[in-house]
Simulated assay, not measured.
Amino acid sequence: MPTIKRDTRGIIIAATIVSCWVGLLVYLLTDYTIDFTSPVAYLFMLVQMHLYTGLFITAHDAMHGVVAPGRPKLNRTIGTITAFLFAYNWYPRLLPRHHQHHKHVATEQDPDYHHGSFWPWYFSFLKQYITWWQLVLMAVTFNVLKYFFPTENVILFWMLPAVLATFQLFYFGTYLPHRGEHAPDNPHKSGTQRKNHLWAFLSCYFFGYHYEHHDKPYLPWWQLYKAKA
């Protein structure tokens, strides 16, 4: 693994994702009138979904120490904040589970793995990462937000994007790369998307290049495409 050097680019990128998520959410809750016949409303929902996914990917990169390399306290703080903004995920709980995934990938000891079809695997995945107190906090937040903002805006731009982002993360970052049997000489038991950097970014911040991530976990998401090239 390369020597860890301080690099502010990951901090700037993390701050940009958080700022975009907050700024767009504030606009969509306060100033945007939904027209359900217009595709713009659904486009905004998809953009917000993608930014939610970006929050989690940032927290994930923090688990590998690459958001603020050489600054462990700042790195952990950014990871804690971005995980918490994504449906109140708790970074200290996620951290050991993710490293367990890397250590025991696609085995019974892998918390992300489930030997089965899509839906049983998805619900198994959710059970590993969603806690009752997250559901309580989400319910409380929903009721507070709908007191101040239109309910349809809260549902379409705050609640649904978070739910859809779990599908995005699971489908492209867990299910597709780890499903099925892998060759005996595949040390990471992971597949990978075909090389298409635009689609790889839009689908899940390059984490469709999943073999490359397991092979070089020290690369942040925004440099992962280099491993594919």
Rank of each mutant, 00 (worst) to 15 (best):
M49W: 06
L43R: 00
A59Q: 04
I57E: 04
F123G: 00
T3C: 06
H102C: 03
E181Y: 04
Y129F: 15
L29C: 08
P2E: 12
L219I: 06
F201S: 07
E152V: 13
G173K: 04
G173W: 10
D215L: 12
A106S: 13
D112T: 09
L55T: 05
Q109D: 14
I4F: 10
W21K: 07
T131K: 13
H178I: 05
F207E: 10
T53Y: 01
Y205C: 02
C204W: 10
M45Q: 12
Y205K: 08
Y113L: 05
K73S: 11
D215T: 10
S19D: 05
M159W: 13
G70V: 02
F36Q: 08
C20M: 15
T166P: 03
N89T: 11
K195F: 15
H104T: 11
K146W: 06
T53D: 09
G191L: 01
L55E: 00
V140L: 15
T174S: 03
H210D: 07
G173D: 11
F170I: 03
I11F: 02
D112L: 05
F148G: 12
D215R: 14
L74C: 05
R9Q: 15
A62M: 08
A183G: 03
M45E: 07
K5I: 12
I13T: 04
T174G: 02
I12R: 06
V105G: 03
F167D: 02
N196Q: 05
M45C: 14
F84Y: 14
T30K: 14
L55I: 02
L95T: 09
L198I: 15
H64Y: 02
P217V: 02
L137E: 04
W90H: 14
T37V: 00
P161R: 10
P161E: 09
K226W: 11
S117K: 13
A139L: 13
T8R: 14
W21S: 13
N89M: 13
L24N: 02
L25F: 07
E181W: 00
Y42W: 11
T141E: 14
N89P: 01
M159S: 13
L169Y: 04
A162W: 04
F44N: 04
C20Y: 03
F56G: 02
L126Y: 10
F84D: 07
A15K: 03
K228S: 12
Y88H: 14
N196W: 14
V163K: 06
T166C: 06
L28H: 06
